[in-house]
Design a protein around this nucleic acid. Structure first.
Lengths: 355, 355
DNA sequence: ACCTCCAATTGAAAGGTTTCAAGTTCAGCT
DNA sequence: AGCTGAACTTGAAACCTTTCAATTGGAGGT
């Protein structure tokens, strides 16, 4: 250790120096005004070549990093949008996020992903923080699509787009999938394959999605001229693999005479759990039990017996939602849209009679 | 269309009030100074009860939302940390993020999750944005742990913690898992079960993780006194389900005499792909082929044949990394730590000789 | 009455940037 | 030489908040 050293005069200290350099320091070092430095950053065409080069050198020397806060304090808006997702463990939502990100990227906007993890307190913490952060807007798959906060945010100036959920009225842009149709597609497929007793595995009914899928299933059954009790209800308390296993055990416990020969699950996690139980109990899929899932997550195709599933256009869902949000944030003449995408049945081994 | 209209003096905005209310508007409405309003927000104990109540009413009336930018412009730091994850489709990273979030939450800090999706350009875009955003710090599972940017960020004042990767020296806090040990555990288990030819399925070798896991596997083989070629290399170009399927086909194509009776996969996605191929080709698991995966993602336990897998303490990984980061951001006497967690073998049906 | 002290409150400065009206320079023209 | 206009540059205001030194008002003590 040497003793006190006098001020090194020309220390270009990008390393661990004192305070981070600001636009003012850059201006000083380059011998120009702050306005010019700002122009180099935001309107390069207004600045002469020579000056620009000099400023850029100064920036590099000082390790200058623009301060986003100050920048956005002026403009009043950040260049960030956020997606508050319901359950990051469900790959479906990850893919929705991917779609959002794609559209956001194209608009040069960053995506801030949050996971409410199905907990109301987490959701509201995030919404508050995001509002204070002045994000351009919020995409959300809400726990409760009718929560008051979803109205308050737009009223206070933060646009909100609701993803994968419906909501009455046109107070928001909404992007969802026709779950009644999806349920109907799944069950129609099973009926066409000759099944006459079909298990419906899903719940809880507090989720609109789940209700709709069941409704669709029922519709398919009655439209085929079958009695409504051809659809055997096996309710679950959550859309998880564990609940799927559980439902599988209940299904296996039914008397052989009335046991369904096919099952429609309200999502793929349930279907994977069911499949697992089947393998464990030596119930052959699809010979003894045909299975249809919902969401068509990648793991559905990758299951030991690839799952037939109802595919939702996840990426499109995200992309479209993001486009709506960016429009609402930027376009003064924005009008809310409600889009309902059409799901599609993807047939795989889990419903295919012997090959 | 009407003809020219004179300037409407109090332009009725379509949705939401006019400009968002600021601290100044609140002060005016409550009949106090801006300083007092700020105190209500940040030092409530300095303000009398009566005044506080009055200010709070005014805030509610005006729908006041504090402006995070302005607030943080003063303090110079946001209350946000970010995690740049390698691949959001791999549930392993989602769980790491969950651990981070837990620790961040406890410190009243928000987590901003980004997905580099294995693309260098995405990674660097995010790092730049985050630096400009002045996040408190960045947690990252980098594509290349030796990239220069990982040194530059801390030099310029943004702490960086490296998650699930190693790096020479102690220039950063680092949180990783002993992958050599993990590989050894997996293969020891197979050797103990009597397997004498074991496939190693993994790649690309550019990933340090993957190299280490293979190294551990090799170590187990030689330590058991077996010839190194008891480990049959089947390299993959990525850690994905599709590559696992592909490797499975190659494995099945080997002459029966030399075909391994067990496989160790460098991650669970590969193992799931392999399992899928086995089921398709009527190769019984574990009777014909025992399988060990790596990561112990939830889907591993949920596979049709539940997978034996090497569990990494994912949540702890995240929690610890976040703690290090917060310390580095807040504690002037911070010292870098390198932690190496110990993995653990979770035995399930995919390696269990008939029950 | 007067003084002291404390709690509560105030007002202005500071933080880093963008914007924009105003200023400067200089080449080209007459 | 003097003028014009384009190209470039400047400097100060504004964005919204927090901080902090200074001020106010009033209770308690003498």
């Amino acid at each position: 250790m040497t003793t006190a050293k006098s001020n090194p005069p020309e220390a270009p200290r990008p390393t661990g120096g004192s305070k981070p350099a600001g636009i003012k320091d850059v201006a000083e070092r380059a011998g120009v005004s702050v306005g010019t430095v700002s122009n180099v950053l935001n309107h390069p065409e207004r600045v002469s070549h020579r000056t620009k080069a000099r400023v850029e050198t100064a920036m590099a020397d000082l390790g200058f990093v623009p301060n986003e806060f100050a920048r956005q304090l002026r403009s009043g808006r950040s260049n960030t949008v956020a997606y508050v997702m319901l359950d990051a463990s469900n790959p479906f939502f990850i893919d929705v996020a991917r779609g959002i990100e794609e559209a956001a990227d194209a608009a040069d906007v960053s995506l801030f992903s949050c996971n409410s993890d199905n907990r109301v307190s987490r959701e509201s913490t995030y919404l508050n923080r995001l509002e204070q952060q002045r994000v351009q807007g919020i995409l959300i798959t809400p726990i409760d699509p009718d929560a008051a906060i979803l109205d308050e945010l737009p009223q206070r100036g933060t646009p909100v787009v609701i993803v994968d959920r419906n909501r009455g009225g046109n107070t928001h842009c909404t992007v969802a999938v026709d779950d009644v149709l999806g349920g109907a597609l799944a069950v129609q497929h099973l009926i066409e394959a000759g099944h006459e007793r079909i298990a419906y595995i899903g719940g809880p009914d507090t989720l609109g999605q789940v209700r709709d899928r069941r409704l669709g299933a029922l519709k398919a059954v009655t439209e085929a001229g079958m009695a409504p009790d051809a659809l055997v209800d096996l309710r679950t308390s959550a859309l998880s693999v564990a609940e799927g296993r559980n439902a599988g055990e209940r299904l296996a416990g039914l008397p052989a005479a009335t046991r369904p020969t096919a099952a429609f699950c309200a999502n793929d996690l349930l279907a994977l759990g069911l499949l697992q139980t089947c393998v464990g109990l030596r119930i052959r899929v699809p010979t003894d039990l045909a299975i249809v899932g919902y969401d068509d997550i990648d793991f559905a195709a990758a299951a030991a017996v690839p799952l037939t599933s109802v595919r939702q256009p996840r990426l499109d869902l995200g992309r479209t939602a993001a486009k709506f949000l960016l429009d609402e944030a930027g376009n003064p003449n924005h009008e809310h849209s409600q889009v309902l995408f059409t799901p599609e049945l993807v047939v795989r081994a889990s419903t295919q009679r012997r090959q």
